[in-house]
Design a protein around this nucleic acid. Structure first.
Lengths: 111, 111
DNA sequence: ATAAAAGTTAACCTAGTGGTTAACTATGAA
DNA sequence: TTCATAGTTAACCACTAGGTTAACTTTTAT
């Protein structure tokens, strides 16, 4: 499975994860599902504030929601997290020396 | 090495990657360094536009820059990419069934 | 000396984030 | 039926992204 860089879903996923509180929520939900109120309480956020975060996570499909009576249960959708993992995973971050390759490139260009 | 969810650098890294064109630039630079003008040309962006993208990537330390004369060379700093990899990597995305765990949690809560 | 090249910076635009308070809807409990 | 609970929505705020055009600086080539 290939995850191209030009995927709009990847935009939404990474945007959703580019926030400490939302990463906190993702982490929390990686341990167990929760209700919206529980999330608000445990992350010191007002209900309207948590609501907005949840909408962003939901739009990115990082979470799923199910309403039971007046209670909203939320769970992590880790399949979506895998898309981000796949994209970043294709880059080798171990065997490259940035400054060296830059200096090298520059001196080759200056010939 | 632990990458906690509440890292401000992670905010900047993921924010920088949450954009198709910047991921395109990252991909491009993963193959070889380039100049600012080359990036603008090969990504159909004006110089002011590419400049802003570069600033965001630079702020996140995803790239490094070196000025030689009037030419600006840019290279990928893959060490920073590793931080994002580390954070996402800690989540198991293979062996969890979201809906099942949610249903399960709900029925346990309703007892 | 002049002009082009390579960027940078400023000013402006629209749209979205992340929070607030206040008002509202829907469901459950007394 | 009345009240509390759980959540949503609206209106507002300051701030930032991502783009534009126009003006500017610095360096190189003619």
């Amino acid at each position: 499975m290939i995850t191209p860089y030009d995927s709009p879903q990847l935009d939404m996923i990474l945007e959703a994860l580019a926030n400490q509180k939302r990463r906190g929520i993702v982490h929390y939900l990686s341990l167990q599902p929760a209700t919206v109120s529980q999330l608000a309480k445990d992350h010191s956020l007002s209900l309207p504030a948590i609501h907005k975060h949840i909408r962003i996570l939901e739009k990115a499909q990082l979470i799923v929601r199910k309403k039971v009576g007046r209670t909203n249960f939320v769970a992590l959708n880790s399949k979506t997290l895998q898309l981000a993992k796949d994209w970043i995973g294709q880059y080798n971050t171990r065997f490259s020396s940035t400054s060296a390759s830059l200096e090298n490139y520059i001196s080759r260009m200056r010939e």
